[in-house]
């Protein structure tokens, strides 16, 4: 049996996957990083919380999501950094003057040439601009085209298409039984009465599970640093 591949500071891939669950970033400058997603690094790298200070200008240009500020840090320096998240599948994506919205827990890191904004849909973040970002999904990502209705839990993100709307199966709540169901909750539900509906041109990213990444409550101040 062959031994495992041994990586060192020079053979680690440059901005590419080490294996399906880990991604190596060659850092020379700055990257935005979600807290706790760095598993190892070579070289001189420092991690700075997002707040007032010398990162002010960078944050002003590339980070417009104060609700999420407690979850993000800036990695600064020179070296190679391995990113991973709960052994989920990790992939990098390139945006070329585009926009992509993604579930906040699934985004691991992005280049400061992209700007991060809060999406109108709660729990989602929008990346705008040109650059690379790294995202995780539970199981490989499947790309779909609108028109499509998707389960909210399976949705990872969407690119280039208009913001989705909610869709409810109205049929299910009609009639006598439906009335009882709607008012008392008795009678059970299939769990699939609510979907996100996408229309227009673009791409929808789905993961092959309905297991969500654990979400950090947003809106709290002070973050997890206490």
């Amino acid at each position: 049996m062959n031994g495992p591949v041994i990586h060192d500071a020079y053979t680690l891939p440059v901005d590419d996957n080490v294996n399906p669950y880990a991604f190596s970033v060659e850092l020379d400058g700055q990257w935005f990083l979600q807290k706790g997603k760095m598993v190892a690094y070579y070289g001189q790298i420092g991690f700075q919380g997002i707040g007032l200070g010398r990162l002010d200008r960078l944050v002003a240009g590339s980070f417009h999501s104060p609700l999420h500020a407690a979850e993000w840090v800036v990695a600064e320096g020179k070296g190679k950094m391995v990113l991973a998240d709960r052994a989920f599948d990790v992939n990098s994506y390139d945006l070329d003057d585009g926009n992509l919205t993604i579930r906040s827990g699934n985004l691991l890191a992005y280049q400061p040439s992209l700007a991060l904004k809060q999406s109108i849909v709660p729990g989602f973040l929008t990346l705008i601009g040109t650059g690379k970002f790294v995202a995780a999904s539970n199981g490989p990502v499947v790309f779909m085209e609108p028109p499509i209705r998707v389960d909210p839990q399976a949705l990872v993100g969407w690119a280039d298409c208009p913001t989705p709307n909610h869709h409810y199966d109205h049929e299910y709540l009609r009639g006598v039984m439906g009335g009882i169901r709607a008012h008392t909750g008795l009678g059970g539900t299939s769990g699939e009465e609510h979907q996100f509906e996408f229309v227009g041109a673009g791409t929808v990213l789905l993961q092959s599970t309905e297991d969500l990444m654990e979400e950090i409550a947003v809106g709290a101040t002070g973050g997890t640093g206490s």
Binding site: K35, F47, G49, A70, E71, T221, G222, G223
Partner: peptide, 8 residues
């Protein structure tokens, strides 16, 4: 003061 680097 709660602005840690997260990778402390």
């Amino acid at each position: 003061i709660g602005e840690s680097g997260g990778e402390a």
